[in-house]
Deep mutational scan, measured.
Amino acid sequence: TYYTVKSGDTLNKIAAQYGVSVANLRSWSGISGDLIFVGQKLIVKKG
Rank of each mutant, 00 (worst) to 15 (best):
T1W: 15
T1H: 13
T1K: 11
T1N: 12
T1Y: 14
T1I: 15
T1Q: 13
Y2N: 07
Y2F: 12
Y2C: 11
Y2E: 12
Y2W: 12
Y3G: 01
Y3N: 01
Y3F: 03
Y3Q: 02
Y3I: 08
Y3H: 12
Y3C: 06
Y3L: 04
T4E: 10
T4W: 11
T4V: 14
T4R: 08
T4L: 10
T4G: 02
V5G: 01
V5M: 02
V5E: 00
V5Y: 03
V5A: 04
V5K: 01
V5P: 01
K6N: 07
K6G: 07
K6S: 07
K6T: 09
S7D: 14
S7P: 15
S7K: 14
S7H: 14
S7L: 14
S7N: 12
S7Y: 14
G8H: 06
G8F: 05
G8I: 03
G8L: 04
G8K: 05
D9Q: 01
D9P: 01
D9R: 01
D9M: 02
T10H: 04
T10P: 00
T10R: 03
T10C: 06
T10I: 04
T10F: 03
T10V: 04
T10E: 05
L11S: 01
L11C: 04
L11P: 02
L11R: 00
N12Y: 14
N12R: 12
N12D: 15
N12F: 14
N12G: 13
N12I: 15
N12M: 14
K13E: 11
K13Q: 11
K13S: 15
K13I: 10
K13G: 13
K13N: 11
K13F: 10
I14C: 02
I14N: 00
I14Q: 00
I14G: 00
I14Y: 01
A15T: 02
A15M: 02
A15F: 03
A15L: 04
A15C: 06
A16I: 11
A16L: 13
A16W: 10
A16F: 11
A16H: 11
A16E: 14
A16D: 11
Q17P: 00
Q17K: 13
Q17C: 12
Q17Y: 12
Q17N: 10
Q17F: 12
Y18A: 06
Y18L: 14
Y18W: 12
Y18F: 15
Y18R: 03
Y18T: 08
Y18S: 05
Y18V: 09
G19R: 09
G19A: 09
G19S: 09
G19W: 05
G19I: 04
G19Q: 10
G19H: 10
V20A: 06
V20H: 03
V20I: 15
V20D: 02
V20E: 08
S21L: 08
S21Y: 04
S21M: 06
S21W: 05
S21F: 05
S21E: 08
S21G: 05
S21I: 05
V22T: 09
V22G: 03
V22W: 04
A23W: 07
A23N: 10
A23G: 10
A23E: 15
A23F: 08
N24H: 10
N24D: 15
N24R: 08
N24P: 01
N24C: 13
N24G: 06
L25Y: 00
L25D: 01
L25E: 00
L25S: 00
L25T: 00
L25H: 00
L25I: 15
L25Q: 00
R26Y: 06
R26L: 12
R26F: 05
R26C: 13
R26W: 05
R26V: 12
R26E: 08
R26G: 04
S27G: 09
S27I: 14
S27E: 15
S27M: 14
S27Q: 15
W28K: 02
W28Y: 06
W28R: 02
W28A: 06
W28N: 05
W28F: 05
W28Q: 05
W28V: 04
S29E: 02
S29H: 04
S29T: 08
S29F: 04
S29M: 04
S29D: 02
G30E: 09
G30D: 11
G30L: 07
G30Q: 11
G30F: 07
G30T: 06
I31A: 04
I31Y: 05
I31G: 02
I31K: 02
I31S: 03
I31T: 05
I31L: 14
I31H: 03
S32A: 11
S32T: 15
S32C: 12
S32E: 15
S32P: 08
S32R: 10
G33P: 03
G33W: 06
G33M: 07
G33C: 08
G33Y: 06
G33F: 07
G33N: 10
D34I: 07
D34N: 11
D34H: 09
D34T: 08
D34V: 07
D34Y: 09
D34W: 10
D34R: 06
L35F: 13
L35N: 14
L35I: 14
L35P: 08
L35Q: 14
L35C: 11
I36Q: 02
I36H: 01
I36C: 05
I36F: 06
I36K: 00
I36W: 03
I36G: 01
F37G: 06
F37M: 09
F37A: 09
F37E: 10
F37R: 09
F37L: 09
V38R: 05
V38A: 10
V38W: 04
V38H: 06
V38T: 08
V38N: 06
V38M: 07
V38D: 06
G39H: 04
G39F: 05
G39D: 05
G39E: 04
G39V: 04
G39K: 02
G39C: 05
G39M: 03
G39R: 02
Q40S: 04
Q40V: 05
Q40M: 11
Q40G: 03
K41V: 15
K41M: 13
K41S: 09
K41W: 07
K41A: 09
K41D: 06
K41T: 13
L42P: 01
L42I: 12
L42A: 01
L42D: 00
L42W: 01
L42F: 03
L42N: 00
L42S: 00
I43N: 08
I43F: 12
I43G: 03
I43Y: 10
I43D: 04
I43S: 07
I43P: 05
I43E: 06
V44H: 02
V44A: 03
V44N: 01
V44K: 01
V44L: 09
K45F: 14
K45C: 12
K45L: 12
K45A: 13
K46V: 15
K46N: 14
K46L: 15
K46D: 13
K46T: 13
G47W: 12
G47A: 13
G47E: 14
G47M: 12
G47H: 13
